[in-house]
Amino acid sequence: MNFLKSSVGRKVLMAITGQLMVLFVVVHLLGNSTIFIGLINSYAEHLHSLGPFVWVFRLALLAMVLTHAYYGIQVTLENRAATPQKYAVNRQLKVSLAGSSMIWTGLTLACFIIYHLCHFTARLTSDVAGFAGQVPGDVYRMLVTSFSHGLTVFVYVAAMAALCLHLFHGIQSFFQTMGWNSECSLPLFSKLGKAVAVIVLLGYGSIPVAILAGILS
C-alpha cells in the first residue's frame, strides 16, 4: 500500500505539516509581539521587503494547510466508519477533550484562517477598508482600529482558544507519530506541547485584549 494511503503514512504527513505550521505560528507570534515595543510597522515593512519570498512562504503555507486539512478530514471520516456502534456506557480513561475535538478545532481554524486572510491580509472587511491597497501600510493603526470592536476581539480570542486546544493534543501527537517517543519522553513532550499551546493562546490573545483595554492605542 502506498505511503499516502497507509494509516501511518498519512499521519506522518499530517504531523509534519502540522508541526511546520506550529513553527510558523510561533515565529508569527514573535513578530506580532513587536507591537508591544512599538516596532510592528517596521517589522511589517521588513517582511514585505522580502519581495517574491513572501509569496513563496504564502504558497508553502497554503500547501501545508490544505494537505493537513485534507488528510485530517479523510482520517477522521475513516475513524468514524471504523466505529459504527457506540457503547451505551463509555468511560474513557485517557481520551481528552482536546484529543477528541481535533476535527472541530481544526475546522474552526480553517474558518478562522480564511477570515483572518480576508481581514488583515486582503483587508476586505469594512473595519479595515481604509487600509486596503496599502502594502503593508500603517499596520499598527489598522490593528488598533480593528480591535477596538469587542466582537472582533472575541472572534480572535476564540480562534486562539481553538488553536490552543488543537495544539494541546497535537504537539505531543507529533512526537509520537514521528516515532520519537520513548516511555520517559512522552510525558515530557506532552508537557512541552501543553506549555506551547498555552503560550500561543496568551501571546496572541494579549494583543487584541490589550488594544480593547486601551493599553495599546
Binding site: 494511503k5 497507509s6 494509516s7 501511518v8 475513524n79 471504523a82 466505529t83 485517557k94 484529543g99
Partner: peptide
C-alpha cells in the same frame, strides 16, 4: 499495517486509551 487497514480498523490518533 496494510492488513490492519484492510480489516477495517481505524487510525491511531495518539489518545493512548489503549494502554490504559
Amino acid at each position: 499495517l496494510d492488513a490492519h487497514k484492510e480489516c477495517g480498523f481505524g487510525n491511531c490518533s495518539n489518545h493512548y486509551e489503549c494502554q490504559a
